[in-house]
Design a protein around this nucleic acid. Sequence first.
DNA 1: TTGTATGCGTTATCAC
DNA 2: GTGATAACGCATACAA
Lengths: 330, 330
Amino acid sequence: MANIQDVAALAGVSVATVSRVLNNSTSVVPGTRDRVLSAIRELNYNPNLTARNLRRAQTKMVLVLLPTVANPFYSRIVKGMEDIAHKNGYNVMLCNTNSDPAREKVYLELLKNRLADGAVLMSSDFETEYLMELGSIWPIVQCCEYNENTTLSRISINNEQAAYKAVEHLTKLGHKRIGMISAKNNFISTALREKGYKRALSDAGIALDPGFIMYGDYGYKSGLRLTTQLLSLENPPSALFAISDMMAIGGIKAAIQKGFSIPDDFAAVGFDNISFSSMYSPALTTISQPKYDMGCVAMELLLKGISGEETMQKTIVLEHELIIRESTVN
Amino acid sequence: MANIQDVAALAGVSVATVSRVLNNSTSVVPGTRDRVLSAIRELNYNPNLTARNLRRAQTKMVLVLLPTVANPFYSRIVKGMEDIAHKNGYNVMLCNTNSDPAREKVYLELLKNRLADGAVLMSSDFETEYLMELGSIWPIVQCCEYNENTTLSRISINNEQAAYKAVEHLTKLGHKRIGMISAKNNFISTALREKGYKRALSDAGIALDPGFIMYGDYGYKSGLRLTTQLLSLENPPSALFAISDMMAIGGIKAAIQKGFSIPDDFAAVGFDNISFSSMYSPALTTISQPKYDMGCVAMELLLKGISGEETMQKTIVLEHELIIRESTVN
DNA sequence: TTGTATGCGTTATCAC
DNA sequence: GTGATAACGCATACAA
């Protein structure tokens, strides 16, 4: 594995000149330039980016922390992030945190070890202080979820309004008994979706039944279990609002298992519009977030922060959309 | 951001000593050791891993190339890889190639730039020569898919046997007209699954109908479209074997749309046992691969290659399992 | 336009 | 047990 010195020797120039053609910084006379280029080819030379990064005090690497790639909700977002990153010569290091604070910290601390130039956080249980301290040194962008006490940049949709729209869709269909399955976590989106649910009920003149709100995690099993419980109530709901598609699908499965017909006996609305939602039988009514765009915008913001082009912290809210499918309407 | 010199100065020792306590290499007297440690704390010092990596000619980073994280099949595998990598102080860089040869190459060439110490390939359209050349310099392990002309290590299941088992399950249920939806690609697994399908039919004394094998990609839409075509045949199949769960689910959706009852009118078997398979309605019969273990084994092999502990190329075949669910049996 | 020389932050070899 | 110091491979300020 040849290095820059070998190339310089073979081309009969100094390493500085080789470096110049490598980065086409200052102008190099065509003649020498060609000699260098052919030496590079002949030696099959590739620059050592570790050395370059050390010298330049950068890594051209960004961290993306997310709970898990297993949730298809994240895959489109990640795609957007990657596209923007690559376009700008950056690589992204995907970090599955499993929502484990210890793991999250391990990853984020890679910044301190100068192994990445910045980070996008898609879930974080970090202390406000810790986050602000790191954010004062390295660019950090929050995507989808955020700690509202920090002043770090954030990208999200209006979760309260989206949830309102989802539940309003159900009330307009005539449903009076609407259950909600939510999650026990610190995500701001969870709280806001619950708020939207309550406001929609209130606006429709429906009294809130606290027994109709159940808590699990984001997953299918959780949705299955909670909905089974809801449907076992003496006076069960006729419709369901779930904070994730996975939970909504679990809810539908529970209803099917109980012999309910969808959407006549039981209707369900999810959240996220993951790809499975349209594949499911019945296809799922859900809230769609502009996943790819969110990823793009988050990464653009991060890269601007890294380049110093944009240091102001921003709050960006993107549009969402209610997608009506078979799980609520025939 | 303090460096090792700052720490040395504050502790009143040389950088060499600081380095020693950092790597607890040679023994350092407890007294100086404590002074160094408290200097590190006081300065909030973190070693610059780029510099360390340059010096040590390593990166503690491995590449994992896969078509897309959007396919849940890969998430468990990746989890296994990550667990093993982290346990050994390595980070993994997940690379979504979208099966695009250009992108694949860009990623793999990161090895040449000394940005990673080795790579796991989970899909590759690389030329045999190219792969062998890189493999002669850096440890490379092939997982699930492989180029059979290379001598690189590989981990997989017996795809032919697994497909055989899946189709045999259908013939034993009495099905005589069994369609297959496959993909147009160069994956070794695809060819082997087709081979297993044919052998199972043959062993059951069923003549192969070439019109019963259709080709698409791995996805849901493809499965939906191809199965719709199969079911439009004058004499349509009563059962389906798909090379992926996503395709099988598309197939089931197609049958449902045509008013078929599953599994009475139409049965389907998939491949991969992605999490969504058990959530689907009807739940999908499928072949389960030991995803997590495959990931672990692949990464273990890679790390042994990197450490030089194991340089022999290996071929490892893991066990699979037929999982029977509602899509074939009531 | 090109070359020389220095430094990025470490680790490791050699002295003491 | 500890300290100088030379590398690692590159980019760049300064000279020429």
